[in-house]
Design a protein around this nucleic acid. Structure first.
Length: 424
RNA sequence: GCGGCGGUAGCUCAGUGGUUAGAGCACCUGACUGUGGCUCAGGGGGUCGGGGGUUCAAUUCCCCUUCGCCGCCCCA
């Protein structure tokens, strides 16, 4: 085999596309319940958009981006996330304003140059929403509740949200310093690369999986002590709203997200069935991003959910729904008069009956075998006999029974037996 | 980017330093000159991931590479 999908990419084959369409359809429906409108943006953007939006020091920007130059030297990047592009489009087309509420949602591939492993690809797919224009805790709660609702619709009904508040810039700075101060005596013993990471973002000290570091940081100061009143009140109100809505959450003062733009609320949903890549989604408030992208100061909150990871959990928990996509009828051709056969099939399709055929016109046995395997519930037999008598032979593939039906009423008769069409 | 494990048919996997590399499932054909699922008989399909080395001889041993998996980092 000469060609294969590039490293970290993979094909979604016909056996699983119905599952994907189902997952996406549930997301479209959930978003509609809240009045979110879909947005689709290009696969690539100016590199600077991500550097600005996500933060220069983040791993995502410093080592995970697919950067390239086009023929005229423009610096471009395959999008590693959708929030920055969505905000760019929002500003570029004036979809809202600081005094208006704008609700956007998306389903998109994203690209990150990482070492692939289970649950982590170089191209993956995310659903997500952005609620723009509200500083209120009710907006945070809406986004979190929407997230949980999608998981529930997918059949993951016991997800628990990890919740934290990072506060605003001032308090974050103070907290960073306190953290570094606490860790100063320990930090010398850490490995070089980890030390550097801590200098870029001391919050990294908190969520390391290294046991030594975890032990050392056990008694480290936590953010909540540093939250200024406004963030404190906001955080309390978010929790109160979630309680009112019966959304389960766990406070986690160690919850840190890898993107610089978050302010105040951050949240994540995790699953044990995922292994090391245990995050199902990540989100939070980003009150400064829009201004940083050149727009007017506008508060916003959003979430991004990994489609692969949601499907992985369904799979490991054996809860994938039955989403097969079968033709309704299989037309068996037992005549050399192929044009006449083709016209019968066409008339059925014109009437909305899905019909599969064997373009190779193999033996009757073979065509019935194919009909069986296609999943069709009905075989329509068209041979010389049928064409001459103007009556099709219709076989029920489950029962094995046959009957003659006049060509004129064939389509109507098949439609009456039709299973409900797959929702599109 | 770092460390560890792996790659034999479309899929799941046997196998051996030495003739034409196997099984199950899947696929195709036939047993019925126009009838599927069950059964039976036959058939197609593999550069043993790729390259190099050791050897009289490599799918098997060694090195490199590629892809996957696990962990770290990080994240969806």
């Amino acid at each position: 085999m000469k060609f294969q999908a590039p490293r970290g990419t993979y094909d979604i084959l016909p056996e699983s596309t119905p599952l994907w369409r189902w997952a996406e359809a549930t997301f479209h429906n959930v978003c509609r319940l809240y009045g979110y409108q879909e947005i689709r943006t290009p696969a690539f953007e100016d590199t600077a958009l991500f550097v600005r939006g996500i933060g220069e020091g983040t791993d995502m920007v410093s080592k995970e981006m697919y950067n390239f130059e086009d023929r005229s030297g423009r610096k471009l990047t395959l999008k590693p996330e959708e929030t920055a592009p969505a905000i760019r489009a929002y500003l570029e087309h004036s979809l809202g304003g600081p005094d208006r509420i704008t609700r956007l949602y998306y389903i998109t591939p994203i690209f990150r140059y990482e070492r692939p492993q289970h649950g982590r690809q170089r191209q993956s797919h995310q659903t997500g929403v952005e609620l723009i224009g509200s500083p209120e805790p009710d907006a945070d709660a809406e986004v979190i509740e929407l997230t949980v609702r999608w998981y529930r619709e997918l059949g993951l009904d016991n997800v628990s949200v990890k919740l934290n508040s990072l506060g605003m810039e001032e308090c974050r700075k103070a907290y960073w310093e306190a953290l570094l101060e606490y860790a100063a005596p320990l930090i010398k013993e850490f490995k070089q690369d980890f030390r550097e990471r801590c200098e870029r973002n001391p919050l990294r000290l908190l969520d390391s999986k290294d046991e030594e570091i975890q032990k050392a940081m056990h008694d480290a100061p936590t953010v909540d002590a540093f939250l200024e009143t406004e963030s404190r009140d906001h955080y309390d109100a978010v929790k109160e709203r979630l309680q009112a809505l019966n959304v389960l959450y766990e406070e986690d003062t160690r919850l840190v997200r890898g993107l610089d733009y978050y302010t105040k609320t951050v949240f994540e949903v995790q699953s044990e069935s995922l292994g090391a890549q245990n995050a199902l989604c990540g989100g939070g408030r980003y009150d400064n991003l829009i201004e940083d992208c050149g727009g007017p100061a506008t508060p916003a909150v959003g979430v991004a959910m990994g489609i692969e990871r949601a499907l992985m959990v369904l799979k490991t928990e054996n809860r994938t729904p039955n989403t097969e996509n079968c033709p309704h009828a299989f037309a068996v051709c037992l005549t050399g008069r192929r044009s006449e056969f083709a016209k019968v099939v066409q008339s059925l399709r014109n009437a909305g009956v899905s019909v599969e055929t064997d373009p190779n016109f193999r033996s009757a046995k073979s065509q019935f075998r194919q009909a069986d395997k296609s999943g069709a519930t009905i075989a329509v037999v068209i041979g010389d006999m049928e064409l001459d008598s103007d009556e099709a032979t219709v076989k029920d593939l489950q029962q094995g029974t046959e009957q003659k039906i006049a060509m004129g009423t064939l389509a109507q008769s098949l439609r009456n037996r039709a299973v409900p069409a797959a929702d599109e």
